[in-house]
Amino acid sequence: MSQQHSSRVGIVTTRPVMLPDFTAVRRLPTRPPEHRDADFDAKYDAETLFYDAFFDGPRRVVLVGPPFLNLKADIEAMTLTAHPSGAACRFRVRELDRHGQVHAEVPEGTVGLTLQAGFGTVEIALSPGETGLFAGRRVLFTQSKNNRLAWIQDWIRFSRDVHGADAVLIYDNGSTDYSLEELAGAVAALDGIKVARIVAWPFKFGPQGFDAWSFWDSDYGQHGVWEHGRRRFLAEAASVQCSDVDEMILSTDGRSIFEAAERHPFGVLRYYGRWVIGLDGEAPPPDKRDKRHLDYHVVRRERPEKRFGLFTIDGDRCPPKWTIVPSKCPPDAQWRIHVIGGQPTARLMTRRFTYRHFREISDSWKYSRVGREPFDPARHEREKLLAEHMARVRWDA
C-alpha cells in the first residue's frame, strides 16, 4: 500500500506473510549453535515467510522473503489458488543467497491468493507493482535506520548535483529517531528530485558474520531489500545506484556514474572505496551532533598489499559497490550487497569511479567508528578529487 506525502514523495508499506499468524512452524537457522552469539536468536528472522507479494505485470505475482531452508519442500509442494477465480496457479520457486522467491502465474483480475502447504494455510493480500513510478529515472537506492535526516539529505544532494540523480528509493528499517513522515518531508524539501518512495521495512536485519568471510549466513533483511526494490519498483529505471548514506561516488574523468552505466555494454559498474576519516585535534569533534559529510576532507592513502604473490591491491580498500541498468540485468541474476550474483560481467571492476566512505557519518550501530588518528602524510591525504566533487554540491538546496 502507498500513502502519499506529496505529489512526488510517498510512503509505502508491504503486505507480509508471517508464520506465527497461521502455523507453529518456524524457519530454522543453519549456523551451528557453537557459532551463535548470545543475541543470535533475538536477531534471527524465524517468523517472516514473505516480506511482500506484488504484481509483476497483469498476470504475474512475485512473493519475496528470507530463504526457505527447512520450509522449502513444503513450499515446492504447496498449492496457490487465485481469487476470485478459484484457479490453481502455476509457480516457480527460487532460493537465492539468503533470499527466497516464488514467481506465480495468475489470471487477470486476481486480487489475492490462498497458500496451502504442509505447515498450514494462509490468505495472501497483493501489493501493486509500481515500476512505472521510476521509469526512465536515475535512482538512488538504499536501506537506512536512524541515519540523521541531514545526512540523508546531503547524500541525495551529492548524487543529484554530481551525477544527475532525480529519484530516490529508501527502505527504512525501523527508525526510532524520527517518523516515516519526517523522513519523507526531509526528502520532499530537496530540489530536483522528481519522485521518491520511503518503504517501511520493519523486518529483522539478521545476525552479522564474524569477519569479512565467516558465517555470513543469516543477514536476510538487506538481501530482501535489494530484490524487493528491484522487482517491485526499479525494473524500468534508467539506472540505479546502490550505496549507503555514508558513501559518495567520485568520478576520475568527470562523467556521471548513471550515464556511464547506461552507456556500458553490460549495464553495470562496480568500484572500490576508500575511507574518509576524522583527525585528532581537527574539526568536527567526534561528538558533534550536527556534523555533515562536508566537514571531512582527509582520505586514507592506498596501502599496497600483495595477494597470492601475483598482484597488488589496496589493503585498506572498502568492498565494492555498484550502479546498474535494470533492463540489462539477467532476470535470474540476484542484486546483492557487493556484487550482482549470476551476472559474470558484473564482477569486472572499473577504476574510472571510486567511492568515499565517511567513517564518522554513522551512529556506530555495528562497531565504534569515531576513533581518531593523528595526521600522517604517509598514510593520509587531503584529497583534491574529493574536494572538487564536494565543491559542485548545492548543500542548502
Rank of each mutant, 00 (worst) to 15 (best):
F375K: 00
R231D: 12
P84Y: 07
L279H: 00
G136M: 04
H223L: 15
L49T: 00
R90K: 15
R382A: 06
G224I: 01
I340N: 05
V276D: 04
E181M: 15
A212N: 14
Y51V: 02
G109R: 10
Q222P: 05
K366D: 14
G254H: 09
V276G: 02
A283K: 12
A73W: 01
C329D: 07
Y178P: 01
E373K: 09
M390P: 01
R15F: 05
S243R: 15
H297W: 07
V102Y: 05
D97M: 14
F215G: 03
R138A: 10
E95I: 05
R263V: 01
E236N: 13
T13I: 08
I156W: 06
R138F: 10
N146F: 06
L69T: 08
K384A: 15
T110E: 11
A188G: 03
G192C: 02
K204A: 10
D56L: 13
H99F: 13
L348I: 07
R292M: 13
D295E: 08
A88W: 09
Y271W: 07
A82R: 08
R31E: 01
R382D: 07
G65V: 02
F68V: 01
S364G: 05
F119H: 03
A186R: 10
V162P: 09
P16C: 02
T131C: 14
R148W: 11
Y296F: 15
G206S: 04
K204C: 00
H163C: 02
T350S: 10
V299H: 01
